[in-house]
Design a protein around this nucleic acid. Structure first.
Length: 557
RNA sequence: GCUCCCGUAGUUCAACGGAUAGAAUAGUAGAUUGCGGAUCUACCGAUCCAAGUUCGAUUCUUGGCGGGAGCACCA
């Protein structure tokens, strides 16, 4: 029976027989973009033609001649400049359809079996707005967490929130002057007033760390209020399925800077050979590692984010024995994170090697950066509301029972898909028109394909047409793409790149819609059971695919 | 100035060194009284510049040009 790696082995063996030594691992074997070129393809003959002193095409022919019959492979062809193309047997593709229909967790792999992975994401700051940047981190982190779960890992979700620091002092200062204003506004106002009231605000900052009695009640209130708001947002973002019982929270662990700060300070203080005094502050000199110097303790003796991050790493490791801890942040923090990691290698070496940083691009306007300091941010709730309003108009005509819920599901799909479809590391230009689009290359497009497939399966049930795969039926584009689903999921999980999955799903949904438009499924013929099976398999594929993106899959829309 | 990221249709994004560079959107023209038109079909339209490596470069290397981010007490 063929597998991906056995095909590689066979090719390697064949080449070795021809006097060319190649490592099976290094044999290229890809899914051709164009299905007419087969289900798998290798360009190996072009690579070794020179060494073999024959033309690429001739070498490919020789390899094919020695491959013999491979179970599960219908034919092997040489095409183009010398590609070796493998076409899977109909029975294999039929087998994938059956799996998709019967296995709940269709698409699952064993890539990370037995691994314990902590994923830290979202990381909003109490006292400040939850804006699109946090939404990005949440969407990406949640999808990565699910991809890892589907690859066999045990995953814990972590959220790290900055409940102490200058931003809090600014918000408190403004709130004391104007008690009526909301916290998000208070922060911005405090920031504007900072130059004029530096001493006062710095004083408040210090008092917060000391849990000073005068401001503590206001601090507690603000902290609780904003954290409670965040919980409501997590719910809206589709994390409610993680709440099984009433008192469970959305993330497995919530870490706070107020807790990590003292730990970090202790770590810095106990390593005077690593952290040096400079201009009244305690810094880490990163120049030896090709990095730059960063402050860990300010001249006012307060910890910076860097120090807290050290404390966080220690706290994480004590909280759960993970193999890997992934932190997802915006790209603007990459450099700072590298300095922290360099310092951590000296202070907490065994933890440092398990820490991994993934950065995503920034959400920005065409005109420039969004900044909560300047106040030109799009809040997560504001954007969701706008999308909700657009979706609601269309939902009125829908056959779904709960139009409000549907509009919300669609709004969520639109915004998450737009974030996830892009390779991480690149900035996302926030284009309102595009963000509000519910058509084409979009989340709702995937949802719609799923809802359609679901409707047909329901109808088949009503008409008592039992789904049955016919292994003799000539495979079509859809079933061949369907067979690739588990590999697409594994690929995305290995690369920690959800966009690799959206690429696949868009192609798959498009193939389904095309097929649907040209083919009557319930046509009363003897071919109907096979087509129903295919539709059912497509339905599960889309459902699981959407789940992996953290996007709801409504059955009617 | 130094470091990192990025330059692909008008616009927003794809393309593990591979076959005719794919989508979406915008624009134009269409879809049979057929299970859902949030769909489908057709047309139009792109790799920043210059060298190099390679059988083959959007992809790798070097140098330009252009954009973004970071570079000492913010996170």
């Amino acid at each position: 029976m063929y597998t991906r790696s056995s095909l590689k082995d066979l090719i390697a063996k064949s080449l070795n027989g021809l006097g060319i030594s190649v490592d099976a691992e290094k044999i290229p074997l890809e899914h051709p973009a164009d299905l007419k070129n087969g289900d798998y393809s290798s360009g190996i003959a072009m690579q070794y033609a020179k060494e073999a002193k024959v033309a690429p095409h001739a070498l490919a022919e020789k390899v094919v001649a020695t491959l013999g019959v491979i179970e599960g492979v219908a034919k092997v062809e040489v095409a183009g400049a010398g590609f070796i193309n493998f076409y899977l047997a109909p029975s294999i593709l039929a087998g994938a359809v059956d799996k998709a229909r019967t296995e709940d967790r269709w698409g699952r792999s064993a890539l990370n079996e037995g691994k314990k992975i902590m994923v830290e994401y979202t990381d909003p700051n109490p006292f400040k707005e939850f804006h699109i940047g946090h939404l990005m981190s949440n969407a990406i982190g949640e999808s990565i967490a699910r991809l890892l779960e589907f690859s066999g890992a045990e995953v814990k979700r972590a959220n790290y929130q900055g409940d102490v620091g200058p931003h809090v002092a600014k918000a408190i200062f403004a709130k004391m002057r104007s008690p009526g204003i909301p916290w998000g506004v208070a922060y911005k106002m405090g920031n504007d007033l900072y130059d004029a009231f530096k001493t006062e605000i710095d004083d408040i900052n210090k008092k917060i760390y000391e849990r000073n009695r005068e401001i503590f009640p206001l601090y507690e209130a603000g902290r609780n209020e904003t954290l409670a708001e965040f919980e409501l947002i997590y719910k809206k973002l589709g994390m409610e399925e993680r709440k099984q019982s009433g008192d469970e929270r959305f993330f497995d662990y919530y870490f706070y800077e107020s807790i990590t700060a003292p730990r970090g300070i202790a770590l810095v203080r106990s390593h005077p050979q690593v952290f040096k005094e400079s201009e009244g502050a305690i810094v880490y000199h990163g120049e030896d590692d090709g990095l730059h110097t960063r402050v860990f303790l300010t001249s006012k003796d307060l910890p910076t984010y860097e120090t807290k991050e050290l404390g966080l790493a220690e706290l994480k490791a004590e909280t759960w024995k993970f193999d890997t801890s992934i932190t997802i942040t915006a790209h603007e923090q990459s450099d700072y994170f590298e300095v922290v990691l360099a310092a951590m290698k000296k202070v907490l070496p065994e933890v440092a090697q398990k820490i991994r940083h993934i950065s995503h691009g920034m959400m920005r306007f065409a005109e420039g950066k969004m900044s909560s300091r300047v106040g030109n941010v799009v809040t997560a709730l504001g954007l969701l509301q706008e999308l909700f309003d657009v979706a609601k108009d269309r939902a009125k005509e829908s056959r779904a029972d709960d139009h409000e819920k549907l509009a919300h599901d669609i709004a969520l799909a639109a915004v998450k898909y737009q974030i996830l479809k892009q390779a991480s590391g690149k900035d996302i230009i926030f284009d309102r028109e595009r963000a509000l689009s519910l058509e084409g290359d979009s989340g709702p497009y995937l949802q719609y394909a799923h809802a359609r497939a679901h409707a047909v399966v329901e109808k088949a049930r009503e008409q008592n047409v039992a789904a049955k795969v016919d292994a003799e039926t000539e495979p079509i584009e859809l079933s061949r793409l369907l067979h690739r689903f588990p590999e697409a999921v594994e690929y995305a999980a290995r690369e920690l790149e959800p966009h690799l999955l959206t690429n696949y799903l868009l192609e798959f949904a498009s193939a389904f819609n095309r097929w649907y438009a040209n083919e009557q499924i319930l046509d009363g013929s003897t071919g109907a059971p096979h087509k129903v099976a295919l539709t059912d398999a497509a339905c599960r594929t889309l459902k699981n695919g959407l789940w992996l993106l953290g996007i709801p899959a409504p059955e009617k829309m």
